[in-house]
């Protein structure tokens, strides 16, 4: 049985089985607005990149789905049981310790030179209170301080100041280059064009 679990802008995630074992299938879908050549290239490059990153994430010992199989535009991964942090936040029962761990987790990714690209509450699953990171579709293997700072910025924009401060505590304690990254974050926030950008 195949069930659609999530439908994103560029991919569909199915709850399926691979050799009798439960697995999630992330399939990048064809975009009619792009010319076929460009579309195929983008989809295959992104899937390949994501497969590489999921493997690197596992190797770094980060809590995240594990890669089972990669095939063209398809990625098969292990499933993570639990609720999305974005959902859990609605009922307001998420404590400071969880945010500290979320910070530590990002620190772990950055230590392995992985930038997530979309580190928001919608991409974190709480499994028995333990944060798991999902969706590496926009991730990169990079030592870029800028990319890492953008990960921190995205979380800062997505949660309350108190939660961000717990997050930051965890991040500082685990991430080796956190000083330089947080300095860059200040610079990014001061860039003129985006100064007045509001948030919802």
């Amino acid at each position: 049985m195949v069930k659609v679990l999530a439908e994103g802008a560029e991919s569909v995630v199915y709850d399926t089985k691979l050799n009798g074992i439960r697995a999630l299938l992330k399939r990048r879908i064809k975009k009619d607005y792009r010319i076929a050549q460009m579309d195929a290239k983008i989809r295959s490059q992104r899937s390949k990149n994501e497969a590489r990153i999921i493997a690197a994430v596992s190797k770094a010992g980060i809590n995240a789905p594990r890669l089972i199989l990669y095939d063209g535009y398809d990625l098969y991964m292990s499933a993570v049981e639990g609720d999305k942090l974005s959902e859990a936040l609605k009922s307001n029962i998420v404590g400071a310790t969880v945010f500290k761990r979320i910070g530590e987790t990002l620190g772990g990714l950055h230590n392995a030179d992985i930038s997530h690209g979309d580190y928001t509450p919608a991409n974190i699953i709480l499994s028995d209170g333990v944060p798991y990171v999902i969706d590496f579709g926009l991730s990169e293997i990079t030592s870029s301080v800028e990319e890492k700072a953008l990960d921190v910025l995205l979380m800062k924009r997505s949660v309350t100041p108190q939660r961000y401060s717990s997050f930051l505590q965890g991040y500082r304690s685990s991430c080796k280059g956190s000083n330089g990254i947080l300095k860059r974050l200040e610079l990014i926030e001061r860039r003129g064009r985006y100064q007045t950008r509001t948030l919802t």
Partner: peptide, 18 residues
């Protein structure tokens, strides 16, 4: 032209879904 416009539409599509 194809690249620039595809980028604009991809970002718009993501916003639309969100």
């Amino acid at each position: 032209q194809e690249t620039a416009f595809s980028m604009l539409l991809e970002a718009s599509e993501r916003a639309m879904m969100l």
